[in-house]
Design a protein around this nucleic acid. Structure first.
Length: 204
DNA sequence: TCGAAGATTGTCT
DNA sequence: GACAATCTTCGAG
């Protein structure tokens, strides 16, 4: 088991944290059991000047965790349907976070599959922010909690070298769409969408 | 295989 | 009252 990433890890530039979170292991424990997955896709949201960041709306009840301690969670509800999980980075006047968009299941796959409704193949369990939260059992109860202790921790995992990190524009937003703040592990099949909207053709 | 649209609720104007 | 850092289903080609 890798060591739990300390608060200092998160108290740095958000872009750096987002890249170094690739290969790390997110692990969530509930009464049903524990599920874990390796992070393969992240996005950086970098403060009030980033119009796609929730903090662009200013400090409100909802965005309060972004202004809090680096190394805490920020979990929000979207489209009346889904939860999305973020790790807060350098708070204190620079309300920023890293959105975890996709991961590769490592343990607890049967639990994930049960939560996701039996339907999905393994690759569809966690390849999107909403799916990831549903599979791991993350919801609003885990908003603004420490990522240094159970039930929700992020551990050191695989080291990903810089040339294996691909950078692309962020996804699913309508403002600051061109900012290259999305990071994925090159070639990993568990990412949510492939770069430049180019989808791998099945027939070859 | 791909594009379009609906679901559904918390939050802010 | 509008809209959102998404996912799934449906229908056309």
């Amino acid at each position: 088991m890798g060591r739990i990433l300390p608060r200092d890890f998160y108290n740095r530039e958000t872009e750096i944290v987002a890249q170094e979170m690739l290969g790390a292991i997110i692990e969530c424990t509930t009464p049903e059991g524990t599920a874990s997955a390796m992070i393969v896709e992240t996005e950086a949201y970098v403060g009030e000047h980033d119009l796609a960041c929730h903090a662009a709306a200013g400090r409100t009840k909802r965005t309060e965790p972004l202004y809090g301690r680096p190394g805490n969670s920020y979990v929000y509800f979207i489209y009346g349907v889904h939860w999305c999980f973020n790790a807060v980075t350098r708070g204190e006047g620079e309300p920023s976070a890293v959105l975890v968009r996709a991961a590769e299941p490592l343990s607890g796959q049967s639990l994930m599959r049960r939560r996701r409704g039996e339907r999905p193949r393994e690759i569809d369990l966690t390849n999107g922010p909403g799916k990831l939260c549903e599979a791991l059992g993350i919801d609003g109860a885990l908003n603004d909690v420490s990522l240094q202790r159970k039930p929700l921790v992020i551990r050191e995992g695989v080291k990903v070298s810089a040339r294996d990190i691909e950078t692309t524009p962020r996804i699913g937003i309508s403002r600051a769409v061109d900012w290259p703040l999305r990071y994925i592990i090159r070639g990993n099949p568990y990412v949510s969408r492939f770069p430049r909207a180019r989808v791998i053709r099945a027939r070859g």
